[in-house]
Design a protein around this nucleic acid. Sequence first.
DNA 1: CTGAAAGCGCTTACAG
DNA 2: CTGAAAGCGCTTACAG
Lengths: 350, 350
Amino acid sequence: MDGSLTLSGLPADRVTLATIAREAGVSVPTVSRVLNGDDQVASVTRARIERLLGEYGYRARSSQGPASAGLIHVIYPRIDTAWQMEHIRGMEGVMQESGMGLAVSALDHGPAGKKDLLRRAQAGQATGAILAAASADTPLGAVLDQLNVPVVALDPGAKAAAKLPTIGAANWLGARAATEHLIALGHRRIGTITGSRGGLLCSRARLDGYRAALEGAGMTEDPSLIKHGEFEYRSGIAAAQELLDHADPPTAIFALSDYIALGVYEAARRRGVSIPEQLSVVGFDDLPAARWASPPLTTVRQPLEDMGRLAARTVLNLARRKVLESPRMELSTRLIERGSTAYPSRSHRT
Amino acid sequence: MDGSLTLSGLPADRVTLATIAREAGVSVPTVSRVLNGDDQVASVTRARIERLLGEYGYRARSSQGPASAGLIHVIYPRIDTAWQMEHIRGMEGVMQESGMGLAVSALDHGPAGKKDLLRRAQAGQATGAILAAASADTPLGAVLDQLNVPVVALDPGAKAAAKLPTIGAANWLGARAATEHLIALGHRRIGTITGSRGGLLCSRARLDGYRAALEGAGMTEDPSLIKHGEFEYRSGIAAAQELLDHADPPTAIFALSDYIALGVYEAARRRGVSIPEQLSVVGFDDLPAARWASPPLTTVRQPLEDMGRLAARTVLNLARRKVLESPRMELSTRLIERGSTAYPSRSHRT
DNA sequence: CTGAAAGCGCTTACAG
DNA sequence: CTGAAAGCGCTTACAG
């Protein structure tokens, strides 16, 4: 019988300092010292105790009462885009329904910030954490994993997060639908602009969806019509300009995010190319800005708010020791047709 | 000597249940019961104890250690706009610098949510709170005020928040500068579209800034050129359409928010009016979307991130019992000239 | 509805 | 570097 927990399946007795002390073969004060960062503890002892604290999922008393147990942390690489607002709205909603709260953190404040995040989680302030966007790829992911708080990855960046339960969107299907829509309109030269230089999971899945649609229609892929960029406006402008300057330019561009699509709009405006008459554009995300673009942007809707809700609910379920139906959940996307796509014109350049 | 705190100016002894019990003339267990929501307490007793808990600023033991004292709540009416992201980025930054965290809450979940927010603050989870946007106007504002956590209002909706320390932007000056810019370009018929039907503080200040500029140029205000709407895209479309259909239409429109300005773009597009050739447009806020509009939007920049930083720092200072330099702080705004404004054309209709 | 008593979880000098 | 002992803040039956 080793240190693993509740093999019985029944809820274990509350884990207190005494539990850990007994298991570690030390006194309660020693465990207390480790928890409080007192450096007067031999490092072997400290290591053993820290391991046991993790294994047993020790939570400070203060985090066991209903008043304070209820906080989960969402962690982003940076706080900088509108779609985070949608996530947050969803998560905040379910936390409040559960009488709990949502804390938001970013990782762009240097390593001290990360340490602190961990310290707070350890101190029992957090019921769980959501690593959103690419934040699951940071070393933090591994460390949080050792902690005894449930962690889920929301739209993770790379495969790195494979060990965490994951919430994502149907990127591949959405991208395929978007491309098929353009093909159905009659487009034969369809360019695409990726984000994160094609590196992030979602970017790769979308690009593959685009390729699958082309292949499904018996069209051969033209590599010169695929531009790798970042998930942002400026990058969209640059890539679209290259595409528009192509000797045999595309009649449609599938931008792998709405921000990129907005960049395509600007590039088209600078070249005097009108949308959708001379160039069809499809985005991905369906941010509020997609509706406000002129003309309104045809795009693939990601249910960002629902993804946030599901992520929060999953953490909560994990905290209640429920078993997940699936370690990987993908919410469906759907194409929203608005004003930026039309039949191709033969003469799209003056 | 009544129940008021630390008249000496020196830090008082730690406030424990015993302190409150002594003062209330009851036993420690009774105070404990009130804190834990046990209903087996006479309502007079409960009321007395609750009052004392507030006066003495009782904080649960768990919230006194460095590990858990550090959380402030930002409260919004709803989580729905991109500028909240900028606020949050600023606040999260200063909280993390201070080794603390930021919790985000919305009030659109019904009264249960509000109660809960209070319960958590009372339980000592919060070091302070920021009532952002119009959330200071809700009844919650008054209640939070009684609590012993410091509260500041960030860009409050109405005068209601007058009792709280307040962070705002120089709305009046910014609006005047925007209007003067249009006048300097040669515009004489300048329309404007307000938000919140002109009701919110910021909306009124901006409208007055517009009027001041007109007056300063010796121009008389034409009431038919002032449309009252909401701070949102759809409302901007509707109001702009009315303005464009005016018998003697404006050659420039000053929209009191970027979202409204984006609506003006769409209305102009529908009428075939080109920006800036036939219609100049100025917005207010400088959201990321302003840069991405086609043409890029000339707008008044509000330092939203800085406002968030200042709000968080102010709460923290208050929590450390520092005295504020001023109960009302206004950060400066500045006009960002981009591509949506130009000299007026004589013939702006075909 | 309230208190005296017992006890729990944790921390903090103190001693070695 | 660690533990025995004292003690603090709080909660929880129990009694009335």
